[in-house]
Write a protein that binds this DNA or RNA. Structure first.
Lengths: 224, 224
DNA sequence: GTCTATACAAGGATAGAC
DNA sequence: GTCTATCCTTGTATAGAC
């Protein structure tokens, strides 16, 4: 019985799984780009492998299948998403919460534009892999927040707008800069959006949406 | 010399090109769905042919190539787009123009959801076929309107917000209901969006965006 | 003018060499 | 543990039958 299940280490691999870790990271990054750009069907393992600098079959060796790789990416993006704005209460200040909401959403789109586009492509295609997530976990998330917005309206802290449409408005307005980046750059004539641009856009959206919903900050309440 | 270039009519084809017209229409409709759902690469002629109820190679017979078919669909959508809101002037009422803008954009998304998603998929993928359109024709369109918004702001008819970000806000907020339809339906738990839903959303967006930009209608000017 | 048959490349996935 | 060689399916496109 010579070595059978034991891993064979070569080429300076120190034996702690560093190669695997690095390769997986490269594959995930490359796959996110390719799936974002071409959708699930349009993406090819060939393309992913080339961008990761690996032979084609290593992608399958590490990830099992195209489908599994794709699902793993979706889950990673859901986890990033879930880390946002996880607990708000009726006692919080509407202006602060909505601004933080807009800001964190812009930051997420900016930090992970490929992930954002991956998600967009999935939903554009009818969300075949995300059905239960949308109508389960995410629906609950939205409705919990919607309830709070309604209570703010009842307390006169903002206009009685439909809270679900408001959440969609914030989502669409912020994601636009990641998902439609090609259009934004083409029309503005810019090469990229700078940090300063993003800051200005965030301020614009915050101002328009808060004012548009008649959000009174605490200061206003005292003043009036 | 028997009939050589003359078309052979069969199966009740009256000889006026009705078959061709009908087949092309079916192909374009099917292709719009498939390209919207899977993007350019992910779409297959097989799938398009099946949905159009035709043998696979007829798609190529009528359309020449996959690429040509795709470009034809993009152009059809651009034409629909260009028919919208083609001339506005500084003398117009900002409230009326912005409301008409939001409303016509919502209607376009509602009337042609597949076309809207086709466009979205193209831009998501980096707009390989639409580069010059975005940085040419569409850019000019945006800047002409932006100039008018600025003049309204100078005249005190609305807040001095960045007009380009405002246009993007209106685009993203309205397109969302076509492009992210799967998400909207999942979260709201609806099967479809009714005309009444769309009307309520339009009213919501109009109210929030106009108020958010401090748009004064003519009546307000008189009253203040 | 329409459709069947076919060419040839690229797709995902697996077996087996190293 | 990693990579090469290969299988089989599906993809676009074309030639030629009807």
């Amino acid at each position: 019985m010579t070595q059978r299940d034991a891993p064979v280490r070569t080429r300076g691999d120190s034996g702690n799984g560093a190669t695997r870790e690095r390769n997986e990271r490269e594959i995930l990054a490359a796959a996110e780009r390719v799936f974002a750009r071409h959708g699930y069907r349009g993406a090819s393992l060939q393309d992913i492998a080339e961008q990761a600098g690996l032979p084609k079959s290593n992608v399958l060796y590490y990830m099992g299948s195209k489908r599994g790789l794709y699902i793993r990416l979706l889950e990673r993006m859901m986890a990033r998403w879930n880390a946002l704005l996880d607990d708000i209460s009726v006692e919080d200040d509407p202006a602060e919460v909505l601004e933080a909401f807009i800001r964190s959403k812009m930051e997420l789109s900016r930090r992970h534009p490929e992930g954002s586009r991956l998600f967009a492509a999935e939903i554009l295609g009818g969300a075949p892999f995300l059905q239960e997530y949308l109508s389960g976990e995410l629906r609950d998330w939205v409705q919990a927040r919607a309830r709070i917005f309604e209570q703010w309206a009842e307390r006169g802290l903002m206009d009685p707008v439909d809270p679900v449409w408001l959440i969609f408005l914030i989502w669409s307005a912020t994601q636009h800069y990641a998902d439609f980046e090609a259009q934004v750059l083409g029309i503005t004539g810019k090469e990229t959006l700078s940090d300063a641009d993003v800051e200005r856009i965030t301020a614009f959206l915050t101002q328009v949406i808060l004012k548009g919903c008649g959000v009174r900050s605490r200061d206003d309440r005292v003043a009036s």
